[in-house]
């Protein structure tokens, strides 16, 4: 029997303009919120492992660290098919950095002792692409990022990672932490019944004390990364224009350009 934990985060809706609140140095997360769209791929991956029988999954548990409003993201996660959810919420968590968040998540995961932890590749707001790795580090488990294909053979997973150029094929033995790229699957839509039934699935709400998490390692108390300022990124250099005078020559130029960059 296998248990999968999926890490999910509540983020501002894609339509909301994001900006840093200069008084706190944190992202302004007001406005409409939703489940991090990248995490729906992690949920889908868990469900596909369960439904295909590739792993003998008896439970998929969605876990989040976030403010009280994050229950909505958990409802969404269970409407998509997770069996239950866990919500760590505590005022002392406010202002946690990636490492603090990774620590808190790892502590929650230890309580569940799953065989596999799946995460999205990035959050739609913080976008550090790092929480999965931080969690793996705290657990002392192998951590893989940007996975876009998962093949199971017993306790061994053969994963394809999207690399800078091309793909890496990597084998890991469970337990492991894997963050998936959005090319891994097409997440399903929640059915009307699943949406209406989401509030009936078990949701465990924990404070730091409940979860026996060290408050000095999270929140403002524990953070090591502090936002100090921001700048506009430098303007991109103009692209290269190739005039199509002689098609054969044009094709050659394009091929050479792509070849230079090892894109073909």
């Amino acid at each position: 029997m296998t248990k999968i934990v999926v890490l999910v985060k509540e983020v501002p809706d894609a339509a909301v303009q994001k900006q840093v609140d200069s008084s706190t140095g944190r992202l302004d997360r007001s406005g409409e919120k939703t489940l991090n769209p990248f995490d729906t791929h992690a949920i889908e991956a868990a469900l596909q492992l369960k439904e295909s029988g590739a792993l003998d999954v008896d439970e998929v548990v969605a876990v989040t660290v976030g403010p009280s409003s994050a229950v909505k993201a958990l409802h969404k996660a269970v409407s998509l098919g997770a069996d239950r959810s866990i919500h760590l919420t505590d005022d002392a968590l406010v202002g946690s950095d990636v490492v603090g968040t990774g620590y808190a998540l790892a502590e929650l995961i230890k309580r569940e002792s799953p065989d596999l932890v799946l995460a999205g590749q990035q959050s739609d707001d913080g976008q550090s692409y790092a929480v999965g790795a931080a969690v793996a580090e705290y657990l002392g488990w192998p951590g893989l990022t940007q996975v876009i294909k998962l093949d199971v053979d017993g306790q061994t997973l053969t994963c394809e990672r999207q690399a800078e150029y091309g793909y890496d094929t990597v084998k890991v033995t469970l337990p492991a932490v894997i963050s998936v790229g959005d090319a891994i699957n097409e997440p399903r839509y929640p059915s009307l019944k699943a949406i209406m039934g989401a509030k009936k699935k078990p949701l465990e709400s924990l404070s730091l004390g409940d979860a026996e998490i060290d408050a000095s390692k999270v929140g403002e108390a524990g953070r090591k990364a502090v936002w100090t300022g921001s700048q506009e990124p430098p303007a991109k250099a103009a692209g290269e224009l190739i005039e199509d005078e002689d098609t054969a020559e044009t094709v050659e130029k394009i091929v050479a350009w792509l070849d230079d960059r090892k894109l073909i």
Partner: peptide
């Protein structure tokens, strides 16, 4: 309510 918003969003 939240459910209705989810339904419309879906």
């Amino acid at each position: 309510d939240d459910d209705q918003r989810e339904i419309a969003a879906m």
